[in-house]
Design a protein around this nucleic acid. Sequence first.
DNA 1: CCATTTCGTTGACATTTGTCAACGGTTTTT
DNA 2: AAAAACCGTTGACAAATGTCAACGAAATGG
Lengths: 194, 194
Amino acid sequence: MHESLIKYISNHAVTPLTESDLEIIKKSFTPKKFRKRQFFLQEGEVCNQLAFIVKGAMRQYSVDGKGGEHMIRLSIENWWAGDRESFSTQTPSKYFIDAWEETDALLVTKNDFNDELKSIPAMMEMSRVLDERHAFALLNRVNASISLSVEQRYADLEKNYPEFLQRFPQHIIASYLGITKETLSRVRSQTMKK
Amino acid sequence: MHESLIKYISNHAVTPLTESDLEIIKKSFTPKKFRKRQFFLQEGEVCNQLAFIVKGAMRQYSVDGKGGEHMIRLSIENWWAGDRESFSTQTPSKYFIDAWEETDALLVTKNDFNDELKSIPAMMEMSRVLDERHAFALLNRVNASISLSVEQRYADLEKNYPEFLQRFPQHIIASYLGITKETLSRVRSQTMKK
DNA sequence: CCATTTCGTTGACATTTGTCAACGGTTTTT
DNA sequence: AAAAACCGTTGACAAATGTCAACGAAATGG
């Protein structure tokens, strides 16, 4: 169960994990199963855990006044889930996070996570690398949203995250791109013709 | 000249700066003036310096096939400018960065910056805090772009970054919001009526 | 000080995207 | 196995936004 997390940390750090590091990690990351549609976080709650996804898929989204869902982030195996802003600042989250598929995750609390960052160099390195990549991905998404057509944004997604298209239904992909499912359906059929 | 930078670092760290820290900082951050429209970075170049803005305003934008500019980021006094992705990964940038106003900046090279992160604790703390905040701001911008109306996005900007509205003309604000200047003009006059 | 550029606005019109409703084909649940 | 929910598509129409052109006011540069 913890194997994929340990492999993941090793892959994203230069400092190797010691035996005692492994002990700490196994102790502080506790496995949890999520059923389809089960919430990991709800709007208004403070996010006090992060989840490493071992198997399955989760989504993070905001809900507007009319009940419409807007996909902020999609995560599958070997990705993290959690609202980083709420987690770091201990303020209520604006988002929901739930399991889209049956999911196996490893949960870590804020305290344990912070302790690990301090005592395990590899953990710190991995965390920095990921935060950095995450910021790059977000800026690219902002750039796409203000500079590309719907068709180009979809092509971008297909190129950069092809897994998403196979794991999530189109209405979720559409929401992630900031459009309706009908528009996505039409854009796709247009593109197919060419 | 370096005063505002030093104050800025102190404000964003808990560890105080020592005398020797100050020496290092003064040595590695070199002042540079930018005239209006002068480039700090051009598409295709690798960003090997970061700029701390002491006075003035800069903008970061991509340019599409038709020559249209899309504002990715706006920065004024006490903000940073530079393409973090290009800077960190040493890959060619997709963006242009230029001075919108006559600007006084302090430039630091990648090597000096990395050395400082290692040797000056306050610098490391500040850097982490800022990267974190930057990531939060980006996620909020993504959320706004897929879940809010143009009117709401403008109101958001007005609330969170009122300085921008006074420092940059409306066609730049419009681009930052991902719309045309005409649409922004109309949305504003609509809102005024209410 | 004049010439030029920039800026914001407006109108007319085209294009894109959203909304609502319906449908058949799935998958899921009971 | 039947019923219900979900999914993707399509059509007709409405609403939002973009495009192009024009204008005057203001700022800028020589």
